[in-house]
Amino acid sequence: MPARPAVPSRRTLLRSAAVVPVAGLGAAACGPDGGGGAAAAPTAPVDLGAEKEVAEGSAKLYRDHNVVVSRGRDGSLKAYSTVCTHAGCAINKLEGTRLVCPCHGSEFDARTGEVLHAPATVPLEELSVEAKGGRIVAGPAA
């Protein structure tokens, strides 16, 4: 008589069914805007908008380009990629000058790119930024 194929128990099937949706959610949440894939910083200079949009001592998030620009009290501009250094998620929340990643809760200082709250341990990538003809232009670091 041939051997019967192994049949998983009811308990094994229920455990597997419970784990699959949870694992799928983690992967989906780690992409840009919660979708699959990794976010990307600009690879070429991009015009972000009017220079006056970023007041002294504040920051502005440009979600469409994965860039945050801050202006110091002295008028100087700084720009950083808003691709989280923990899992590559697009950061989509700016509270004052604090960036908050939607995937795992990492927080960064928009003025310095420094990590304020883990799980990220590496600062944001600094980008080049300048004001040209009243417009803010940011791109990869030179």
Rank of each mutant, 00 (worst) to 15 (best):
V129S: 03
E95A: 12
V115C: 03
P5T: 02
K93Y: 02
K78E: 07
A138G: 14
C101S: 09
L61E: 03
L94P: 03
G31L: 00
D47K: 08
D64W: 00
E53L: 11
E126V: 03
E53C: 03
P102D: 13
A79M: 05
P8N: 13
G49Q: 09
R73V: 01
S81Y: 10
Y62W: 01
P42H: 03
V19L: 15
S9F: 13
D33V: 05
G113R: 07
L25T: 04
E51S: 00
A131Q: 13
G105H: 02
A18L: 15
A17D: 02
R10F: 12
D47F: 00
V20F: 13
V46P: 14
A39D: 04
S81T: 12
A39V: 03
G133T: 05
G134R: 13
R111N: 10
G57I: 01
R63A: 11
G24W: 14
V115M: 05
S16W: 06
C103W: 13
V67M: 05
A28L: 15
G34E: 07
L61I: 02
A44Y: 07
A79D: 08
E95P: 04
L14N: 09
D109W: 08
L48G: 04
G35H: 12
G37I: 07
V46D: 11
A28I: 05
S76C: 02
R71Q: 06
L99G: 03
G72Y: 04
L99C: 06
A44C: 07
S81G: 06
E56Y: 02
S58Y: 07
K60P: 06
K78V: 08
V115D: 00
S106D: 01
A131K: 14
L48S: 05
V68I: 08
V122L: 04
A6D: 14
K52A: 15
D33P: 07
T85R: 01
A120E: 11
H65W: 05
K60M: 07
K93M: 01
S81Q: 09
T12R: 13
P32S: 05
G26Q: 13
E130C: 07
G57R: 07
R10M: 12
P32V: 03
L94Y: 00
T12L: 12
V137M: 11
R4S: 13
G105R: 01
P123N: 14
L61H: 03
S16D: 12
I136E: 06
T82V: 06
G37E: 13
C84G: 08
A79Y: 06
V67C: 07
G57H: 07
T85Y: 01
G133L: 09
L99Q: 04
A40N: 11
S9V: 09
V129G: 06
V137D: 14
D109F: 08
G57F: 06
I136H: 11
G34Q: 04
A131N: 13
A23M: 15
V100T: 14
D64L: 00
L61M: 10
K93G: 01
A41S: 12
E51Q: 00
L14T: 09
A50G: 10
K52D: 15
T12D: 08
P2H: 15
G34W: 03
A141Y: 12
M1G: 12
